[in-house]
Design a protein around this nucleic acid. Structure first.
Lengths: 243, 243
DNA sequence: TCAAAAGTGTTTCTCGTACACCCATGT
DNA sequence: ACATGGGTGTACGAGAAACACTTTTGA
């Protein structure tokens, strides 16, 4: 039958297919890992131990694992990003909000060979940050305030700029802010996250109202306990994730 | 000097660098080419002449040109997208609003070998569409209404869905709508674009007011002439691009 | 003269912004 | 007792939404 014919046809084609006739690029994932330390938006950078850009700071990242043939095709891009995050920071999967920023593939962005990088941004809870320094591969990794970060290797400055613009844009409408706050948090803590990302100050009263609207939308729920502050203790809340 | 030493060091490293120790993926660009035909949001698809997915419809696209060594590293991703657009549609550069959607790299999305695709969406003025059919490589290219498009090859259905979501999201706040309208246009024509993309109907009066606000923001300017309609002729406007 | 679409007016509601103010608590 | 920050009230303006209405043209 035609159906059977079609299958054999395709199988024959696949067997005859010779990969690698054309040169291929290397593909990496690079991570823009962000958190808030002492009320300052901060980024995780690694010092490059090898050429090119030896000694410069760069985004953590690495090559995407690609299998040898049609049978094993390697790992997903997202999984590669997760793996790099774990290897370079020691953070467990699910500890960060990981989202793809896009592909950066300008020729000569890496002097060695053509490299196309798929960038991700990862937002890490400040309460998990202490774990980061401990990691094995993470020797040479350091947090910098984003506003006073050193110039970066490759086109990583451009990637960081795009990540920041993206996070700012996503601040309202998505749940990015909750990824930068402890499990349970006060209204003021969440407001600080917004202020730090936007680089402005927000009216506490007005922010509170927006916040409470989320509450009866079911995005948030009150949690037990209060947070001790410099003055009157504040109610703590929890983000309810319904994906 | 240390400076001189550093340069020689790096040059030596580059010379010694042996590329291709690890398997590399193929990288393609795929295009979600959209326009509005007869008031219907439409997408350009090509019939696949070869395996895999022979006979299925797919997004236009092709391999990114990658050079042989460090000296020639090939073309930029954006340029590759432009080139494909030209080759497959005959559209000149600048005829379409071309923006990157992201990278799609699930293993086994192509049965032959690991392929990572960088997707772009291209919004084409309906007045330019007649040129499209004429193109050389464009044999087998056809417009489909997006709502009744056939099932696509590879993971292209997913890419299209993401493109549509992106365009809908960008509709307000960016100038995507102006890319789907003739050089000069009436308020009703622009409204139709919004309605078609959002899949809703909009109040003519209210839309007009939003539109006029753009006018005194300087985003638009009145153009000479009127557009003949079924009834009272309408004023035409022009989009002023200040990038 | 009639249908169709351009263009105007009006009302209501929601939301952002600004700002004044009260209240509870740790020091 | 008092400063600090949590929490509340209010008033104004911009804009979204709904809808009734007038005007201008082609057929």
């Amino acid at each position: 039958m035609a159906r059977r014919k079609q299958r054999d046809d395709e199988a024959a084609f696949l067997a005859a297919y010779a990969p690698g006739k054309f040169p291929r690029p290397s593909v990496t994932v690079d991570l823009v890992v962000l958190t808030i330390l002492d009320g300052v938006l901060s980024i995780l950078l690694v010092a490059r131990g090898e050429h090119p850009f030896k000694g410069r700071w760069a985004l953590p990242g690495g090559f995407v694992r690609v299998g040898e043939g049609p049978k094993d095709q390697g790992e997903d891009l997202y999984d590669a990003a997760l793996r790099e995050l774990r290897e370079e920071t020691g953070l467990p999967a699910g500890a960060a909000l990981l989202e793809q920023l896009g592909a950066f593939g300008r020729p000569n962005r890496d002097p060695r060979t053509r490299v196309i990088s798929v960038a991700y941004h990862a937002l890490v809870r400040p309460t998990l940050v202490p774990h980061v320094s401990g990691g094995g591969d993470a020797a040479g990794a350091r947090w910098f305030p984003v506003v006073e970060r050193p110039p970066l290797a490759f086109d990583h400055d451009e990637i960081v700029e795009r990540a920041l613009a993206r996070v700012r844009g996503d601040l309202e409408g998505t749940s990015v802010a909750f990824a930068l706050v402890p499990e349970t948090f006060t209204i003021a803590e969440l407001r600080t996250v917004h202020e730090v990302i936007l680089g402005t100050t927000l009216d506490p009263g007005n922010f509170r109202r927006r916040f409470l609207r989320m509450l009866d939308d079911g995005v948030l729920e009150p949690a037990r306990g209060k947070r001790a502050t410099a003055s009157k203790p504040a109610q703590v809340y929890r983000f309810v994730d319904r994906r």
